[in-house]
């Protein structure tokens, strides 16, 4: 049976991991390659690298880092941040990224999704969506969730899927950083609306939160950053916990 995936997310700035990390056994926890290796060895199913300042500062994602990661780890990884064109993606894939994640650029230029799917295949096109409710309606937000749009979340994920996205990475800005759990109602709605995998993001605090994202939110994968980086949740324990809850995971 296809398993549910656990995906640590590493925020990258200038080729270094940002947000504090708390791995005492790593010589250099700020080194994304070291951290990626650690996660892949402890059972992460995939990794996401997000060049967090890229969109704002118009920086191109760091190709050397992608290359180092691809040379070192033997699980798939996605790179996001600052991707605006087919050429940007070609360079990332050429250097060893398995998938790319596009966010603001897809909203501004939805045809980019079609172009990427046609050129590289849907399997490597992750459309990331940041959203929160405005007057009770889930609205897409841009630039790391800072800029609201009038676009309805559910309309947008359907459009993205129709245009050829291979996967949706949904981050609830309401839940992100709260450690109160994922936005399971919205997740479930998205999962019912589209027939491509959905990655839950934003709000992971406990192991039960992950189980809920899969059971209630019907997510195919769950992404988190700080609970993993600070060692609050260890991936092997999390997977054992999920298995006990009859959730299929790779152990």
């Amino acid at each position: 049976m296809l398993t549910k995936r656990i995906i640590p997310c590493l925020d990258i700035k200038n080729g270094r991991t940002v947000k504090g990390v708390n791995f005492v056994d790593l010589i250099d926890a700020g080194n994304p390659v070291e951290l990626a290796k650690k996660y892949s060895e402890t059972g992460a199913d995939e990794l996401v690298f997000l060049d967090i300042s890229a969109t704002e500062e118009q920086r191109s994602t760091l190709l050397n880092l992608v290359r180092d990661v691809a040379a070192t780890i033997n699980i798939p990884f996605t790179v996001g941040g600052g991707i605006n064109s087919v050429d940007d993606v070609a360079l990332l894939l050429k250097n060893g990224a398995d998938k790319v994640s596009i966010n603001s650029s897809a909203v501004k230029n939805p045809d980019l999704i079609n172009q990427l799917a046609q050129k590289f295949g849907s399997q490597c096109v992750v459309v990331a969506v940041d959203a929160k409710r405005i007057d009770g309606i889930w609205k897409v937000h841009l630039v790391g969730g800072k800029v609201p749009t009038a676009i309805n979340l559910y309309d947008w994920v359907v459009e993205a899927a129709n245009r050829g996205a291979g996967e949706i990475l949904f981050t609830s800005m309401e839940n992100d950083g709260t450690k109160d759990g994922f936005a399971n109602d919205a997740l479930e709605t998205i999962s019912k609306l589209i027939n491509i995998p959905v990655i839950a993001s934003g709000g992971a605090g406990t192991m039960q939160d992950f189980a809920d994202a899969f059971h209630i939110g019907k997510a195919d994968a769950a992404l988190a950053a700080s609970v993993f980086h600070f060692g609050e949740i260890e991936i092997p324990e999390l997977k054992q916990f999920l298995k006990q809850q009859n959730i299929e995971v790779r152990i």
């Binding site: 398993t3 995936r5 199913d45 399997q123 291979g166 027939n195 195919d220």
Partner: peptide, 8 residues
């Protein structure tokens, strides 16, 4: 769900 994506 299509594509199948992940570990099986």
């Amino acid at each position: 769900k299509v594509p199948q994506m992940g570990w099986n």
